[in-house]
Design a protein around this nucleic acid. Structure first.
Lengths: 195, 195
DNA sequence: CGCAAAATAGTCACTTAGCGACAAATGTCA
DNA sequence: TGACATTTGTCGCTAAGTGACTATTTTGCG
């Protein structure tokens, strides 16, 4: 990894930390981009080059987690029923959250507290859901018959993940995230369309 | 209804129509608030008094639907299992959508097409889900044991509604919305926690 | 009707998000 | 070191959104 890339990563992280700090003390709306910039001694233009919006200073970090989900899904056998694949990939992703629980707990706390930020997260997760639907549709078999299911399952799974994370945050990570997810998922059973 | 209120309703509707028209022709980002204002011959300050954000010019109209949902839920028997109540209320709300299908199809088409607008809709629906959770928690019985379920069910139901609406829009209202919802809901079964 | 009180709309001034273009600075690699 | 590519800063701009104040309508009562 080049010096240039190391510096970028460092700045990116510093911007997150400055933002978290300022937002915790003043609130999201009251924190301006130039305050975040000043705290890290860069120009505000630079902040907006690292992050597309102010919300993204926080929320872009969960995109790594989403990448984990996709990577996991691609490796599942294509003949596995969709719900099983999705649950497995969700568990993988949440396990990676768990592994950096300090980091993600802080971020998700802010996301949960600030509607504008969670709206932006939902936007990203809707985009991911659409990608996942495409992947499921590309699997051989089903065709037309699965169209509705393949749109519905990813969205529902992401909802369940969201609730699990919200509980995890509410209890400050006291219970393992994957465990909370399993409990949540057990409340919603997917009909055996594939049977 | 006073003249004053009639005028307000008329202006509100004109603003929606102007916005829909402009957005269809130019796109959402390219349409400015003052363009919408000009089309209706009011000041742009007035537009922002009617609607909190530009997104809300479109999305605030679905809040009526959400009110229908809440009203329906309040009238369900408190000893009914939560999933049954939620499904019934969702059907009521979607039936009212159906009744004004021309109106809602146009609005939901824009919502589906513009990420910023659907993000805002999600924000409203998250707020509604929180209210619904409170209502469910206030029902006697359960207590602690239902905490997770009562947070999860509303969110999942709203996801299912969202997918149903998205299909409905995709087929231009060809299939009855409630029917699509029923099909979607049959794909996700709620575990009999209450049994 | 006509007039005072209340509600609503318009005007003005301001802050901040976000973007495009160009110049300055910094890292890369031969 | 020096040429090249990448990143950062500066400047100028548009548009969203807010607060304060003024002007205009609407209401409802004598």
């Amino acid at each position: 990894m080049s010096l240039r890339e190391k510096k970028k990563d460092r700045t990116r992280l510093q911007l997150l930390e400055a933002a978290l700090d300022l937002i915790e003390r003043q609130g999201f709306a009251e924190t301006t981009i130039s305050q975040i910039a000043e705290a890290v001694e860069v120009s505000s233009r630079t902040v907006l080059r690292y992050f597309a919006t102010k919300e993204d200073v926080i929320v872009s970090w969960v995109e790594d987690g989403m990448a984990t989900f996709l990577a996991s899904l691609e490796q599942r056998p294509a003949d596995e029923p969709a719900p099983a694949s999705l649950i497995a990939s969700a568990r993988d992703m949440l396990a990676s959250y768990q592994a950096k629980s300090n980091f993600y707990l802080t971020i998700e706390r802010v996301i949960a507290a600030v509607p504008a930020v969670s709206a932006r997260k939902q936007e990203l997760s809707a985009a991911l859901a659409a990608k996942v639907t495409k992947i499921l549709n590309a699997r051989k078999g089903g065709g037309e018959r699965f169209a509705l299911a393949n749109e519905l399952y990813p969205i529902v799974i992401f909802s369940v993940m969201r609730v699990a994370i919200s509980q995890w945050v509410a209890f400050n990570g006291a219970r393992p995230l994957v465990e909370v997810f399993d409990e949540a998922v057990s409340l919603v059973q997917f009909s055996p369309l594939d049977a």
